[in-house]
Design a binder for these strands. Structure first.
Lengths: 291, 291
DNA sequence: GAGCAAATACTCAGATTGAGTATAAGTCGA
DNA sequence: TCGACTTATACTCAATCTGAGTATTTGCTC
């Protein structure tokens, strides 16, 4: 069987209060792709990924981690594409030629619970999934774990895979080579781009509470509210302001700069990330069990 | 550059109160290897791994997850081996031909803190690491985070990598093609087997507290003390018995069978894992912040 | 039946959470 | 220049969770 090895990158930023993923346009196709490269001669995979991102998107990334290796047999049965997916975080940046920031919640609308459970879920998605589950106890249980009562932000992939199996996303129809004849949700990406992006969002959400990852997405200095909005954007839920501030201060992750930023109301103090923390005890994140 | 794609498996069990990893003997070499296979034609990587384990070790595994993909250029510069490592959990089983259960804490003695900080660390390892760090602030910080005051069970790989860089493990000397001329610690494995095993231990320790993974390692029914010993073996720390029991009961992960097991003292009730939990809210583990 | 060993029950102070209320410090329009 | 408005920041409080014990069972063995 023919084998191809690729590196795919999920490059994440948070702009205007929304999480984004970098899509590159694909001359032949209508849909956005993830930036992708064949494995170069760099000594380590991490370096190869950074080089590829630099080259394709002209971006310098502040954080890179390996996400997952996808290797299922492709549609063409004679060929297997193994794709090592990486997750990268960058600060707000300009648009790039041939590339665009896609809204994560345009791809996965049901993941945004910042104003309570997403309306689509109760009105449409959950009923359709329950119909799909039918008599199957196992399916019903999966639906209820993934979409049920308490929103578990980390289960992004579980939810996407249910949507896929229940043919509620475009990709299912494409994989079956069928015309779409029933409602599908969210914008799709080329091949399994959206599945990989979903995996990445789940990973980031999980890390949020025990590693200081947000700071790679924020500018040098920021107010506590900006920090909170950034966490909320990724986590997909709203947080309790006073408690958030309490936690951040207790964690000692940031320090005031003395400067202050003015918006509408009382100006907020600007903070910066304390890089010593990286070295210190570092198993600290911005947690979010508030509310 | 020539490219080879392999699947490696870290197969973990807990027997006699110690965590083990399956090593296979390697006709040409002195050291144990991880079971390894080239990628077969199975439709998914998971299936390929299960098939390889079944074939090489005759084991049926209850749990498999992808661990990490290692792809650094090998010692031979003209060739890159990309190895997709998997983590599998099995219950206590007999020994197998050509395979042996290696003690995790023979490979990584400094990871066992069940009787307090491991004596090797304070007496020997930490001084050597500090000597190695010398003036470098960055190195000193890494040493203190990895080995410092509060033992953070998850940082297994950090610790192994420090040991490697400070040439305190066999593999460093082998990679440099040098005779070992200063003390090295722990039993080594073939190539980067021990590094991969370290990654796996870190992963499992992390999961312990939020996914019910231990149950894949235990027999059908068990006492709460056996459960606790199993968690302790993996976590490498001792737990507070009464609080452990409190947590397990509150979590509702197990149910009594009515049977009881007799040892020395008062017979303990036997429990079984409640499989419904798998489906229910499942983001539950056996936590371990007690003590 | 006394004494041992381990299981199980119960206690308690201190820290952490979730959810508010109260007050301060700016901007902006009348 | 005042008052409304907006956002920041301080403080409170009950409920829960944790860490660390002490106390009581229950079966076994001699």
């Amino acid at each position: 069987m023919d084998l191809e090895l690729r590196l795919d990158a999920v490059i994440i930023a948070v702009t205007d209060g929304a999480p984004r993923v970098l899509g590159v346009s694909n001359p032949e196709r209508a849909r956005w792709s993830l930036p992708s490269a064949t494995l170069s001669d760099e000594a380590t995979l991490d370096l190869a990924v950074r080089a590829a991102i630099e080259e394709q998107a002209g971006l310098e990334v502040s954080y890179v981690e390996q996400l997952y290796t996808f290797g299922d047999v492709a549609r063409r049965q004679d060929r297997r594409t193994v794709s090592i997916a990486y997750l990268a975080l960058v600060q707000e940046t300009e648009l790039l030629v041939g590339a665009e920031w896609l809204g994560y919640y345009d791809l996965l609308p049901w993941e945004d619970h910042r104003s309570g459970t997403h309306p689509l879920i109760e009105s449409t998605i959950e009923p359709l999934l329950i119909a799909w589950a039918g008599q199957s106890e196992e399916r019903l249980a999966r639906v209820s774990v993934a979409f049920g009562d308490a929103f578990d932000g980390v289960r992004v992939l579980d939810r996407y895979e249910l949507m896929y199996e229940a043919n509620l996303v475009d990709e299912w129809w494409a994989d079956q080579r069928l015309e779409v004849t029933s409602p599908v949700f969210g914008e799709s990406m080329h091949l399994d781009g959206r599945r990989i992006a979903a995996t990445a969002l789940g990973r980031i959400r999980g890390k949020l509470s025990y590693r200081p990852v947000v700071f790679d997405l924020l500018p040098e200095s920021f107010t506590l509210l900006e920090l909170q909005r950034c966490v909320e954007a990724l986590a997909g839920v709203q947080l309790h302001k006073q408690n958030f501030r309490r936690l951040i201060e207790r964690a000692g992750l940031v320090e005031g700069t003395g400067e202050r930023a003015a918006h509408g109301g009382r100006p907020a103090e600007l903070f910066r990330y304390r890089p010593e923390v990286q070295l210190e005890r570092s198993r600290l994140g911005v947690g979010q069990p508030y509310r």
